[in-house]
Design a protein around this nucleic acid. Structure first.
Length: 872
RNA sequence: GGAGGCAUAGCCCAGUUGGUUAGAGCGCUUGCUUGACAUGCAAGAGGUCAUAGGUUCAAGUCCUAUUGUCUCCACCA
């Protein structure tokens, strides 16, 4: 093995070997239980970012664990066409060439788009590979490939035929930059400091004025009513009259509607049905006309009179000025409110009336709510269930049409001649009724429409494929909480309604990766960590480990360079532990672990390993990867390296060949099993070391059997015994450090064991000598003569000759400090035990323990007092 | 406005069904070329567990309120 840990030298080679050996591919296999995950598809032209790295690490850890556990394990990878995001990017590229998409035309544009996708798409696939993900690449899917398109069309047509998809003129969110409708879920609300303008509308043929408050004065040109609350006394007499709409020559009615809040603003609201969702509803109730005053780019149109041609921002300024000049503007208040922005380009959304396709949700939503309520689908952690249900229960009809070209074109054909409209999988050039040419709907579908089908479209639905039969429903979906509404909920209702089965059993929700200060990572704030850069410098294993170690599911993660460095050190630790073990193997005979004649330390490490296996397995089964990895970190570093490897040196460097063989056999066994436990989380380093092992139990670690708990390794007695020994060693080291005894100074050690631990002391004598800088350890039955330092420990009294080490002052200080601690403990126990209420109500076992403790500390106090007397 | 999360060492976080002296890691201090590792070893300092009440023999842990903070949903002009 290389002297230093250099992940760059082996990670790629190992991954390629895995690919070559076909370890990632899965086939329906009746002999085994299936376990399947579908990967949330990243944007096909995107770059791997830290969020993907987190999700993919979690998924890969689960997949590798299940694979080693003997499941037929399938992880389907794929990419998403990401309609708006990609189209925006391509338009940018075209702009640099000085072309618009309109100039290219639909066909030309799509040709370019596909070329672009072929060139840059798939880069992210290579990036996912560097992370070590064990996906079945033969099944790589793309949301817009042929198979997936078939699924999309089929679903559309089914829903259309059931009347669950319809075309309607409704108010939708329009992005004037992307030139398309977007769904409610795609609108982001951002607080924006603005004003509340109070405008006086003169009541027709009267001196009265009605004052309305608005944040959007420019929409005054589209007003078709003024609304007040029906019970508002201030305005009751005006209902039914009209006002003269300022800046126009129109008269609009004053209506009463309970939508109006009496206490907000002036209690009177201008109603602009064509440009506000609430006003749209009011307009519907009162049969108000719609006046659309803006075009698709947010430029005021011919309905805006003299303002025709102004952009909506300019129009606002101009209109406020004109209102003010003509005396209509009564007051301008500062006002912060939330404004909807496009989640892709962050342009302010314009609510507009337009003809779009919608999915009727009420019917689809019901089974999706039930499945979660009945726990047929479980959210982990559970609290996200609430978020999901809330989203589901409040969902509106889903606007699925987009005025874009990059996407699934709506499979609806119109005959302009006879008016026939059909939805069909096959492209229809001519009308089946009259034979005239047909025209396909121009719009494409919302990206999420195809993502919603991902769990079964990736398996070939609507065909009844063997995959679908065997792997569907999938086992667990892993994703971040920010797309529960966008994606998770839509997959659930889609799966249940179209396949009749839930798409997955568990939904594992993880958090978002933040920077060291807890800020969201983003390109604009420049605080993003590039996972590829991290992999290049410290390796994929370090990145993976720093993303998942210690995390709680659903919680956000703070990523910092220090963390990364710490875990790189951990990899180095593993590497060196392996080097130590392998470096001592030469010429040794490897004995099967059951047959090894075990020392106390051997039994102890096997018991510790066993309890680690139990805990890690329990955690992995619950998808608690963060806890599993923390457990392993502790085991590798603080148990195996800090203690067992040190213990092992006493027999490894002895002349007894049998001892040597036994010890190296235990070392190799523990190392191998530990590597396997670690493998799902840090696949590369574990595979690299495993390949060097003389005791491999499989061709490759990733297909080796996962460690199982072994009953005959369990030994609580051994664990207790070693704890006494390590505590003893620690106490001696502690004393030496406090007395400033130099490391090189070795001393004799006398131990007067407490009753019942004589054997333990005997068994640990070599360890104590080696690890506590001893030079001969003697077991005695009374305090030895001469100047001695005293340690009162659980194992007994320990005496160390002072000789040259004497520093009476320091030793007194040390003993006094001990005394303080002991006194505090005695007082605590006494006060507890003297309370009648405690003694009568607390469990007997606890009282017993407290009594024992009191006794122990009282004994210690006695000894310490004696010793202090002597020092005077 | 509604819902949920979080608040523990200088920093980042663990802390099981309430029950010994509240734990790691990073950082800090001190001492170490210990026959794998200075990306290391050993020892140490550092905490009124956000605040105020309550339940209990016993509260970091359960309940209530308050404060701070983050997220999601709604979008009242």
């Amino acid at each position: 093995m290389n002297k230093t840990y250099t992940p760059n030298e082996f990670e790629t080679a190992i991954y390629n070997k895995w690919l070559e050996k076909n370890y990632f591919s899965a086939e329906p296999n009746k002999e085994k239980k299936p376990f399947c995950i579908i990967m949330p598809p990243p944007n096909v032209t995107g770059q791997l970012h830290i969020g993907h790295a987190l999700g993919d690490t979690i998924q890969d850890a689960i997949i590798r664990y299940k694979r080693m556990k003997g499941f037929e394990t399938l992880w389907i990878p794929g990419t998403d066409h990401a309609s708006i995001a990609t189209e925006v990017k391509i338009i940018e590229v075209l702009r640099d060439e000085g072309i618009t998409k309109e100039e290219l035309g639909r066909e030309g544009f799509l040709k370019r788009a596909f070329e672009w996708k072929d060139k840059y798409g798939g880069k992210i696939v290579e990036q996912i590979k560097t992370l070590g993900c064990s996906c079945d690449w033969d099944r790589l899917a793309f949301t817009m490939d042929e198979e997936r398109s078939r699924s999309v069309k089929q679903v559309f047509i089914n829903l259309y035929k059931k009347g669950l998809i319809f075309k309607g003129n409704r108010i939708i969110n329009w992005c004037p930059e992307c030139h398309t409708a977007i769904s409610d879920a795609e609108v982001e609300y951002v607080e924006d400091p603005s004003h509340l303008w109070h405008i006086a509308y003169p009541v027709t043929d009267s001196n009265e004025k009605i004052i309305v408050a608005t944040t959007r004065p420019e929409t005054i040109l589209g007003d078709t009513a003024v609304a007040v609350h029906p019970s508002d006394k201030r305005y009751k007499h005006l209902v039914g009259k009209t006002v003269d709409l300022p800046l126009t020559d129109r008269k609009i009615p004053i209506i009463a509607d309970s939508y109006v809040e009496k206490d907000f603003g002036t209690g009177a609201v201008k109603i602009t049905p064509a440009h506000d969702p609430n006003d749209f509803n009011v307009g519907k109730r009162h049969d108000l006309p719609l006046i659309k005053i803006m075009d698709e780019s947010g430029i005021l149109n011919e309905n805006a009179g003299i303002y025709n041609g102004l952009d909506r921002d300019e129009a606002r300024k101009q209109i406020v000025k004109d209102l003010s000049d003509r005396g209509f503007l009564v007051k301008t208040e500062d006002y912060n409110h939330n404004v909807g922005h496009c989640y892709r380009c962050h342009t302010v959304i314009e609510p507009m009336v337009s003809e779009q396709w919608f999915v009727k949700m009420d019917e689809l939503v019901k089974p999706a709510i039930d499945a979660v309520k009945k726990r047929d689908i479980t959210f982990i952690p559970k609290r996200f269930e609430k978020q999901y249900l809330h989203w589901m229960e409040n969902t509106q009809d889903w606007c699925i049409s987009r005025q874009l070209w990059w996407g699934h074109r709506i499979p609806v054909f119109y005959c302009d001649d006879c008016g026939e409209t059909i939805a069909t999988v096959e492209n229809k050039a001519f009308c089946p009724k009259c034979g005239k040419p047909m025209r396909q709907d121009e719009d494409v579908l919302d990206t999420w429409f195809s993502s919603a089908l991902w769990p079964f479209s990736t398996m070939g639905w609507p065909e009844k494929t063997p995959d679908l039969e065997y792997f569907y429903p999938t086992s667990v979906l892993v994703t971040a909480y920010d797309i529960i509404g966008f994606w998770v909920s839509r997959m659930i209702f889609s799966g249940l309604n179209y396949t009749g089965k839930k798409p997955f059993s568990d939904v594992l929700i993880h958090g978002i990766v933040r920077d060291a200060h807890g800020k969201k990572m983003s390109k604009s704030s420049g605080n993003g960590v590039d996972p590829l850069e991290v992999i290049r410098t410290v390796g994929a294993d370090t990145l993976r480990f720093s993303l998942v170690n210690g995390i709680a599911m659903g919680g956000d993660i703070k990523y910092s360079e220090e963390k990364q460095e710490g875990y790189r050190n951990f990899m180095n630790k593993i590497w060196n532990a392996a080097r130590f073990v392998l470096g001592n193997c030469d010429g040794a005979e490897i004995i099967p672990i059951e047959k090894v004649k075990k020392t106390l330390a051997d039994k102890w490490i096997l018991a510790q390993l066993n309890s680690t296996v139990v805990k890690v397995t329990k955690y992995m089964d619950k998808y608690e990867i963060g806890l599993a990895s923390a457990e392993l970190y502790e085991f590798v570093w603080n148990i195996f390296c800090d203690w067992y490897i040190e213990f092992s040196k006493t027999s490894l460097y002895s002349d007894d060949l049998n001892k040597r063989n036994s010890t190296i056999s235990v070392l190799l066994y523990v190392l191998r099993e530990t590597l396997k436990l670690l493998h799902p989380i840090i696949p590369f380093i574990t595979a690299e070391i495993y390949n060097e092992l003389p005791n491999k139990d499989a061709e490759d670690i990733m297909i080796s059997p996962y460690p199982t708990a072994k009953r005959n390794f369990v030994s609580n007695v051994t664990i207790k015994k070693i704890r006494l020994i390590t505590d003893t060693i620690r106490s001696i080291r502690n004393m030496r450090a406090e007395l400033n005894v130099p490391q090189s100074k070795r001393t004799e050690i006398y131990i007067k064991p407490n009753d019942g631990v004589e054997d333990t002391v005997k068994a640990g004598i070599n360890y104590i000598e080696k690890l506590a800088s001893g030079n001969g350890v003697h077991i005695v039955d009374k305090a030895p003569q001469g100047n001695m330092n005293l340690l009162v420990t659980e194992i007994g009294e320990i005496y160390i000759p002072m000789d040259q080490l004497i520093d009476f002052e320091k030793e007194r200080e040390r003993l006094n400090k001990e005394m303080e601690k002991v006194d505090a403990e005695i007082e605590r126990a006494q006060s507890l035990l003297s309370k009648e209420s405690f003694v009568s109500k607390a469990p007997a076992l606890l009282i017993q323990k407290e009594r024992e403790k009191l006794q122990k500390y009282t004994d210690m106090k006695k000894l310490l007092t004696q010793k202090l007397e002597m020092l005077k």
